[in-house]
Nucleic acid binder design. Structure first.
Length: 562
RNA sequence: UGCGGGAUUGUGUAAGGGUAGCACGAGUGACUCUGGAUCACUUUGUCUGGGUUCGAAUCCUAGUCCCGCAGCCA
């Protein structure tokens, strides 16, 4: 199934098409998405996933999901399960499911091979000494005194590293390349370190673990990856990637291509910082609806299609960039506008009594479920003498462009009647408006004025007698500034946290249609936005809705200018 | 004063010697029983200086600015 549809083209596709033309890989395309299971996937990973899987799909190739689990001290099964779920949810099916840890034996053999070729050695320098010997960006490094050990000694020492004869951190296996290389990565990079940590898959079998730069190219070779797509910061590592591929000689020569990571305004993409938000309780968890994680976006109400579409729209290039969050919002609105059922909900209720409407009467009006899509049909909505409207939809002393309800003014109740505000009832103590007394025009049934008089405003409403209660959670950006990672003013991202990123409204009034709304289901609350039934906190008698995104609000714009 | 990348409107991304286009945002208007949606229109851009050419975002040249790299992280 084509999940990405027509993806246009980009510089990666051009390279691949050239490789296909020249028959470099037998016209095959095989990519992989290689997350480290040390955190949850976020929207930035979604970009990578769409590129990795989408590219394979475009050329009729394959794409593996591979866990790059070479550092047991940071990894956990919790993350691998979450990652699998997120990739599936996004809509992708992997061809092979692999783990770098499946290849530990092969990697060990590769290391032995390098030693035998005289291309790797065991080094006894301490971490501090290694750093010292590495030199700086402008000065070459010095060769380790252990650099010229014999093959036999290296073989012996490396085996004993594996056997656990040496303490953590006491020795490493290093590639013998060039301590004077202008590329720091080539200054005898560490290939293996001693690390006693229980691995989530291999348990305590190993006490030495390969480093990324050594492991990754081997993983790609073993799986027959043709194009190894990764982010820009690995550009400098490509010579080392190629060095390993060439010297380890596993029969295939994958090609690494780098593209720019996704950055989004008003949010963070650093796994470390996201973890900090979780650990410090700043958010409720990885799946907090304010998080840019896939689990957060899912809980918030984003659809997989909207995220894929977003990833398609942002493009692929090598320029560092920051995408406007508004584009993501556009993508979810676009999807939900077409597909979400309309429903009426009053989140800040103001009681309205229609004085000339019979006390014991209820009428059921047919209201369309989605004017964009008539096939979605209609539903019955009850109307009676006492209703709720939105507090914001009434002003006692309205400005010119306000065309909602005001004293003496008429307004249409969506699908029901035209009403007129006759009287405002206030709390005697506080002066707060607590109730409106209105009259309705019995001739305007369904909302049409028989005399053709123009009624500009149309409000959503809920019959008080039939309303069901719900909690509604409104979200705003987690951060108050477009780039919370900007620490130039001596601030940290925590200084930019938005104190108003979550607003909880209780006792919201919903039309009865929502009585059996399923967790995870999405609706448009008329005139308010798109909302999704919370999957975590919704209980038998406690409905919770998350606002996915508001509707575009022209009035809010006008009002804010005044 | 090393190495590797990058620079096109507010944002993102096309154009690879031949009218700088698209999307989002912003603005204006139309329409509307959602101030939604839809439709129409508008606005702003090739980092700088030289050069080649009838013609340069594109080729050459000299700069400028930005990002990444000194984990036994990935």
């Amino acid at each position: 199934m084509e999940i990405m549809g027509d993806t246009g083209t980009n510089f990666i596709h051009e390279i691949i098409e050239e490789d296909i033309r020249t028959n470099k890989y037998g016209k095959k395309v095989h990519t992989r998405f290689p997350p480290e299971p040390n955190g949850y996937l976020h929207i930035g990973h979604a970009k990578a996933i769409c590129i990795d899987f989408g590219t394979a799909e475009k050329y009729g190739g394959k794409c593996n999901l591979r866990f790059d689990d070479t550092n047991p001290s940071k990894e956990d099964v919790e993350y691998v399960e979450a990652i699998k779920e997120d990739v599936k949810w996004l809509g992708f099916k992997w061809d092979g499911l692999y783990y770098a840890s499946d290849y530990f034996d092969i990697m060990y053999e590769c290391a032995v091979k390098l030693i035998k070729k005289g291309l790797a050695y065991v080094c006894d320098l301490s971490p501090d000494e290694i750093r010292e010997y590495r030199g700086t960006l402008t000065e070459p490094g010095k060769e380790s005194p252990y650099r010229n050990r014999s093959v036999e000694e290296n073989l012996d020492l490396f085996e004993r590293m594996k056997n656990g004869e040496f303490p953590d951190g006491s020795r490493v296996l290093r590639a013998k390349i060039d301590m004077a290389s202008p590329n720091m990565n080539m200054r005898d990079p560490v290939l293996y370190r001693i690390l006693r940590a229980t691995h989530h898959r291999t348990g305590d079998k190993w006490c030495i673990y390969p480093m990324y730069d050594f492991a990754h190219p081997i993983e790609d070779c073993i799986e027959g990856i043709t194009h190894s797509l990764c982010s820009l910061e690995f550009e400098d590592h490509r010579p080392l990637y190629d060095w390993v591929v060439n010297n380890v000689d596993l029969g295939s020569k994958p090609r690494q291509i780098e593209f720019a990571r996704l950055n989004l305004t008003y949010t963070l993409m650093s796994k470390r910082k996201l973890l900090q938000l979780v650990n410090e309780g700043i958010v409720s968890g990885w799946n907090d609806p304010r998080m840019p994680t896939l689990s957060g976006l899912r809980r918030r109400g984003y659809t997989p299609a909207s995220i894929r579409n977003f990833c398609e729209k942002i493009g692929v290039a090598k320029t560092n960039s920051v995408v406007d969050y508004a584009l993501l919002e556009h993508c979810i609105r676009e999807d939900l506008n077409k597909n979400a059922k309309r429903v009426m909900a009053v989140i800040r209720p103001l009681k309205v009594v229609i004085e000339n409407y019979p006390e014991d009467k209820t009428e059921w009006f047919d209201i369309e479920n989605n004017p964009e899509n008539p096939e979605m049909g209609t539903r019955k909505v009850p109307f009676s003498r006492v209703i709720y409207i939105e507090k914001d939809d009434f002003m006692e002393d309205p400005p010119k462009k306000f065309f909602r309800l005001a004293p003496g003014r008429e307004v249409r109740l969506k699908g029901a009647y035209i009403i007129k505000c006759e009287q405002v009832v206030k709390d005697e103590q506080t002066g707060e408006i607590i109730e409106l007394r209105c009259t309705y025009d019995p001739e305007s049934k369904g909302g049409n004025a028989p005399d053709g008089r123009k009624v500009k405003g149309t409000l959503h409403w809920v019959s008080a007698a039939h309303a069901i209660d719900a909690e509604v959670r409104l979200y705003d950006h987690l951060f108050t500034v477009p780039n919370p990672e900007d620490e130039s003013e001596g601030k940290t991202f925590k200084d930019y946290l938005n104190p108003n990123s979550l607003e909880v409204l209780k006792n919201c009034k919903l039309e009865p249609e929502l009585y059996c709304a399923a967790p995870g289901s999405r609706y448009q609350f008329l005139r308010l936005g798109y909302f999704c039934v919370d999957t975590v906190d919704t209980k038998e008698n406690h409905l919770v809705f998350n606002r996915t995104v508001s509707l575009k609000d022209t009035w809010a714009k006008i009002a804010s200018k005044e």
